[in-house]
Design a binder for these strands. Sequence first.
RNA 1: GGGCCCGUAGCUCAAUGGAUAGAGCAACAGAUUUCUAAUCUGUUGGUUGGAGGUUCGAUCCCUCUCGGGCCCA
Length: 534
Amino acid sequence: MPQSKLFTFFNKALDKLNLIDIPFKIDVPPRQEFGDFATNAAIIAGKKLSRNPFEVAEEIVAAIQKIDSEKIIRELKVVKPGFINIFLTDTYIQQSLLEIHKQDHAWGTGDDYKGRKILLEFVSANPTGPLHVGHGRWAVIGDIIGNLFKAVGYSVTKEFYVNNVGNQIEMLIKSIDAARKGEPTPEGGYGGAYIKEIAENQNIRWSETDEQNTRESVLNTILDQQKTTLSSAGVTFDNWFFESQLHAANKILLTVQRLHDLGKTFEEGGAIWFKSQETGDDKNRVLVREDGRPTYFAADIAYHLDKYERGYDQIINIWGTDHHGYVERLKGAIKALDLPIEKFNVIIGQLVTLYRGNEPVRMSKRTGEMVTLQEVIDETGSDATRFFFAATDVNSHLDFDLELAKKKSNDNPVFYVQYAHARICSILRKALEQDTSHKIQDTNGDVLNELTHPAERSLMLKLLAWPETVKLAAKLRHPHRICEYGKELATEFHHFYEKCRVIGSPARLVLADASRITLRNVLELLGISTPESM
RNA sequence: GGGCCCGUAGCUCAAUGGAUAGAGCAACAGAUUUCUAAUCUGUUGGUUGGAGGUUCGAUCCCUCUCGGGCCCA
């Protein structure tokens, strides 16, 4: 597609100047008169060679014109500080529509990272209660980032880590036990409506004699609730990893032993410590307590060692902002184990504030406690929830307006994008009714040269930007770029629809169908439904 | 006290160091005998929190500072 072809051209041209791997860009310029695409290649190259960027630009242009045997480029213009503005031929743009039809569901996907494996861990909420809205955001972001990675060729494993061992679990069990006996919440325990709900849940086999059995029963109940909530937002996992697996396989103590063998631990006060100060931490951290119980930190190190041992090319975690302080500590431990730290990345997700119109919503009407993710999904639906969670940069705090998410109008970008898809489907249905013999996929490529209206050209260029949009979003791990693209493409289509009558023109039917394919792929990547009528 | 994130139009947000900072909503003015008006067209709206610095060029990078969120102490 255009950008990748153009990259090939410019790389070849730069190669002649003995420049490789310089960080130039080819993108859509801010104004139409600057071309269909534009690049700063000559400016960057000129700087590197300490030469006049204009001269360099002229050399690049000359070199490219020799390579362009397919006549993709109509004109290359060198302007102001040394930009090269690129104008594509109409024929190339028009014929690209056939490629979209050919690729269909694969349109926008690639295999740049084929054969590479990524482990993506996210949500990993404690099994002590319902998921909150922040979890929902990180779940959706994680799910879509997984889709993005798959789209560029990675093999992706989505994993949820369950802390099903330790103090907080014991406290949870005690709290529920107290609730079912009508006793007050124990010191430092969990209170609230959901504890009461669990205590009253008839499915839990409560046994005074078999603590292990009771514990499992309670945890499974809570975990099932979390799974139900996640799947109602369309989020699924390939793997549920339990902390207890690490204990059962003795992996935590083996990890501590390994750190000890590497000289990264010491003993003090009966406890085993990790020399985390050596890795830049404020203080050293306990791995194994005086009484022999390992800390959460030790379990986390063992868990990440296990991830490395499973042989991934990249290990990516999505954590809430409340865990950011933990990142460097864990990285320190990974380095101490002599594991390649560059494989490990943590994406920090900021929190969500719920609004109802202008009023912040802190408490659930139903329970009087923190609003759960399930309540939000039940109220606004999976499509809107996913879109709004994905639509802003995960680095920024998110304001989520429940009223806006429910609106079925122009204010609501989810419906705007879905409507464009439904509208195209409706047109194509009608076209088929009027001429049952016409098949879009059999349209002769020659008729596409009719597509010369500015609205048609603009729409085609937007379609052609799709694969590069996916690549960039995957590289930067930015789901919101897909939402942005969806809105822009919907706008382009509506504009085209307003200006150009589709039915009766085989060429425009091809263009409408290519738009349908692209919009559908956008929505599917986001995990949002693709209605054929609304 | 230390760390991380954020600050862009009245509101919610975009803008991989690029050209005159863009959308949607809100406000105002229009478009439907025609393929879905859940749509489209136009107008108004900005010292990118503030001050320095780096460079051909800074919303973006660096330093300081103010404000908000989160974590640690």
